[in-house]
């Protein structure tokens, strides 16, 4: 129970993951769905980065001379999450392009109205 108050980054990222998941799943508006997807992804990135962070160490950049492995935080999650951001941006752009197409063809971006229409 006390981990709720000491590991606040992880707890916060879990709450954000829930909020993003619910926004992606339950909202009818497509733009809000896409924003929810972005929130969900960044919450997972925050979880990863918080796992790589070690208190009292500096960023993994060598300034002047190398201070040994013990002086820096774990650089692997940062490198992975950079790839994750690229993926999130490309999926977002693709989904927004589909949203524009949907509006051109159906005249609305509310998903429940679109699903009621027959596609013909």
């Amino acid at each position: 129970m006390e981990m709720l108050f000491t590991k606040y980054f992880e707890v916060g990222s879990m709450v954000l993951f829930g909020v993003g998941f619910m926004t992606l799943l339950l909202h009818n508006n497509l733009i809000k769905k896409i924003i929810g997807m972005n929130i969900m992804d960044t919450a997972v990135f925050l979880f990863f980065i918080a796992k790589g962070y070690i208190d009292g160490r500096e960023a993994p950049i060598v300034r002047g001379f190398h201070k040994g492995v013990e002086a820096y935080v774990n650089p692997v999650p940062a490198a992975l999450m950079l790839t994750g951001i690229v993926i999130a941006v490309s999926v977002t752009a693709f989904a927004l392009a589909l949203t524009v197409k949907i509006y051109e063809k159906y005249g609305t971006i509310e998903l429940d109205e679109i699903m009621k229409m027959r596609g013909d």
Partner: peptide, 8 residues
């Protein structure tokens, strides 16, 4: 390749 930043 040596400090924060990069192609993206």
């Amino acid at each position: 390749h040596l400090s924060p930043g990069g192609g993206f």
